[in-house]
C-alpha cells in the first residue's frame, strides 16, 4: 500500500516534469521564439508584425520574481531567525504559549487573504507615504515577507532546538552570557538549519502567485525601482493563462516561464539538500 502511494507520487512528479518541460521547450524547438528573444526584456505579445512583434522576452519577469523573493527574504530572514531565537532561547514559555500558535495561524491564512490585505492596506499606505501608485516591488516584498515569515520561524526554531543542551551549559559554565552563548555558539551550530529555513522561504516566495499578483501592478517593467509596478513569472502566468489559445506561441511561452519557475525551485531544493549534507559532515 505504501509502496503504491510512493509510486503514485513519483509517477506524478515525473509526468509533471515531462509535461511542463515538453510544453516549455516547444516554442524554441519550433523556432517561433529564440532563446535570445526569450531572455530579452522585450515583451509585446500583442504587437503586430509591422510593429516588430509579437515579442516574447521574459527577462523582466524572471528578474521580477528574483527581486521579490530575495527582497522578502532580506526582511524575513533576520526577523524570522530573531523570532525563533526569542521563542527557543530567551522566552521558551511565552514562545510555546503565544508565538507558536501565532505562527501556526499565520501558516493557515490563505494567500488570497494576504493579497487582499496588501491591496487594501499596504498599497494605499505606500501611495500616501511615497506619492506613487503604491503597486509595485515594495508592496510585493512586504506581503511576501509576512507570508514566508512562519516558514522561516518554524524551521529556524527546529534548528535551534536541536543544538545540544551540553553546548549551552558548557558555555555558561565558562562565564559566557546568554547573548555570547547565542551569538558565539548556538547560531553557529544551528547555521545550516537557519540557512535551510531562509532558502525554503525564498522558494516559497518565488512560487507564490496570487497575493503577489494582487499588489505588484502587473506591468512589463524591470524590477529595479521599489515603488514602480512590475511583474513576476507567476503573476504573468496566472493573468494570461486563461486568455491565450491552447497551443499558440503565446500560450507556449507561458509554459516556458513555468519551466523556468520549476527549474529555479529545483535549484533551491538542491541547495537545501547540499546544505543539509554539509551539516552531517
Amino acid at each position: 500500500m505504501t509502496l503504491v502511494s510512493a509510486w503514485v507520487l513519483i509517477i506524478t512528479l515525473f509526468s509533471l516534469l515531462y509535461f511542463i518541460a515538453s510544453k516549455g521547450i516547444a516554442p524554441f524547438l519550433h523556432g517561433e521564439v529564440t532563446l535570445a528573444d526569450f531572455f530579452s526584456g522585450n515583451w509585446g505579445p500583442s504587437l503586430s508584425a509591422e510593429q516588430g512583434g509579437p515579442q516574447y522576452g521574459a527577462l523582466d519577469f524572471i528578474l521580477g520574481s528574483l527581486m521579490v523573493a530575495l527582497g522578502s527574504a532580506v526582511i524575513s530572514g533576520p526577523l524570522g531567525i530573531g523570532a525563533a531565537l526569542f521563542m527557543t532561547e530567551i522566552a521558551p514559555k511565552a514562545g510555546r504559549k503565544i508565538l507558536q500558535p501565532a505562527v501556526e495561524i499565520l501558516v493557515g491564512i490563505p494567500s488570497v487573504v494576504y493579497g487582499f490585505i496588501g491591496l487594501t492596506l499596504i498599497v494605499p499606505a505606500l501611495r500616501s507615504i511615497f506619492g506613487e501608485v503604491g503597486f509595485g516591488l515594495l508592496a510585493g516584498i512586504i506581503v511576501l515577507s509576512v507570508m514566508i515569515l512562519p516558514t522561516i520561524i518554524s524551521i529556524s526554531a527546529d534548528a535551534i532546538h536541536s543544538v545540544p543542551q551540553g553546548i549551552r551549559e558548557g558555555s555558561y559554565a565558562l562565564g559566557a552570557t546568554r547573548w555570547q552563548t547565542i551569538s558565539g555558539l548556538v547560531i553557529r551550530v544551528a547555521q545550516p538549519g537557519l540557512l535551510t529555513a531562509v532558502v525554503l522561504g525564498i522558494a516559497r516566495a518565488f512560487g507564490e502567485a496570487l497575493a503577489v499578483q494582487m499588489v505588484i501592478g502587473n506591468t512589463a517593467d524591470l524590477p529595479f525601482h521599489l515603488l514602480k509596478p512590475m511583474s513576476t513569472l507567476t503573476s504573468v502566468i496566472t493573468l494570461n493563462m486563461g486568455n491565450t489559445v491552447q497551443g499558440s506561441t503565446y500560450n507556449n511561452v507561458l509554459w516556458s516561464m513555468a519551466l523556468i519557475l520549476l527549474l529555479m525551485t529545483l535549484i533551491l531544493i538542491l541547495a537545501i539538500r547540499f546544505i543539509a549534507r554539509r551539516r552531517e559532515v
Binding site: 558555555s171 559566557a176 553557529r188
Partner: peptide
C-alpha cells in the same frame, strides 16, 4: 569552573575551544 558528565566540546577547533571564553 565546571566540567560535565558528557564531554561537550564546541564544534570549533581545539584552539578555539580554549580561547572561546578568555576571548570574551
Amino acid at each position: 569552573g565546571m566540567v560535565f558528565q558528557r564531554p561537550n566540546p564546541f564544534a570549533k577547533s581545539i584552539y578555539e575551544n580554549i580561547v572561546f571564553a578568555p576571548r570574551l
